[in-house]
Design a protein around this nucleic acid. Structure first.
Lengths: 158, 158
DNA sequence: CCAATTTAGTGAGTATGCCTATTATATGTG
DNA sequence: CACATATAATAGGCATACTCACTAAATTGG
């Protein structure tokens, strides 16, 4: 009989539920209301001004169809703006707005503060171990994901 | 600057993407087409014949609204049947069908075989460590989740 | 330069995962 | 028994996450 409770897939799904819940609660306690996914997109938009949607998606491992909806919501709330790229008229360039930057600046410390709560019940050493193993596994499985993480500047060997 | 790539929440989301992708590929290679979520629901329905939806949801940490849709799809494909509970007319009792049991019997070995692929790049020992830490963290954070795992037979102290 | 291929983004469809509200039914208390 | 409360399931809505098909535009090969 398959013991679901010890299967990594089940445990990862549970941790994902806990993670999104803790994130949302922490951000709301700081007086804002953005999801972890929106936070990551906003952070990367701030770090790479004028990046197009496809590259932004690759930097945070989102599907191309998914990032469209995320940006729709961020744009509707005035946190990012999109323009047709001057160098490639297929592409749409994403820029964080002043309002988006303000949200990011207020939310980022709260996000940093809640990191330990995402893996509750673990010692600092155990958390480090978990993060190290998760990094190793996600790097090794990157190609297995439907939306792999892509480097900012793709290597020719890729 | 927040380093998203080392945040447990981001890593967990990436592992979740890899996990669902590997699961689907493995199940499809075995000639079937059910998701990890459907597999867990089917497994628990087989293990607890006649369980109602709310308890089934609790056993696998699903939201009550979510389990309805999952069972809709399993029922549409003839893998489970639902009836009004004879002891509580609000509740609907879930039973796995012969077809559902057949799918489960064929898929379960494939699921067991793909477990190691869910955490690729890790040694057997590292996988054990990851699973142990994930169990510890998910147990500790259970209440933080919107849909906590509930015991089959709830204790009065809960 | 032109045709074939690739790429960026969207749209429609499906599946989780959550929220709030509603309906129907139980249960507990006076 | 009557009333207040609690619970099971659903309905409708929003947010990821993915698939496939499509349009428009860029790139590559000849």
């Amino acid at each position: 009989m398959a013991d679901i409770y010890r299967m990594p897939g089940h445990l990862i799904r549970r941790l994902h539920q806990i993670s999104t819940s803790v994130f949302l609660d922490g951000v709301r306690a700081a007086g804002h209301d953005i999801t972890a996914v929106q936070f990551a997109a906003l952070t990367m938009a701030a770090r790479h001004p004028g990046i197009d949607q496809a590259r932004l998606a690759g930097l945070i491992a989102y599907d191309r169809a998914t990032i469209g909806g995320v940006l729709d919501r961020l744009e509707a709330r005035g946190f990012v703006a999109r323009e047709v790229s001057p160098t490639d008229r297929r592409a749409r360039v994403v820029k964080i707005t002043r309002a988006g930057r303000a949200v990011l600046e207020e939310v980022t410390p709260a996000v940093a503060a809640l990191q330990d709560e995402i893996l509750p019940g673990l010692t600092a050493e155990e958390r480090e171990t978990f993060i190290r193993l998760a990094e190793k596994a996600s790097a090794a499985g990157n190609r297995r994901s439907r939306a792999p993480l892509l480097p900012a500047d793709p290597l020719p060997s890729d």
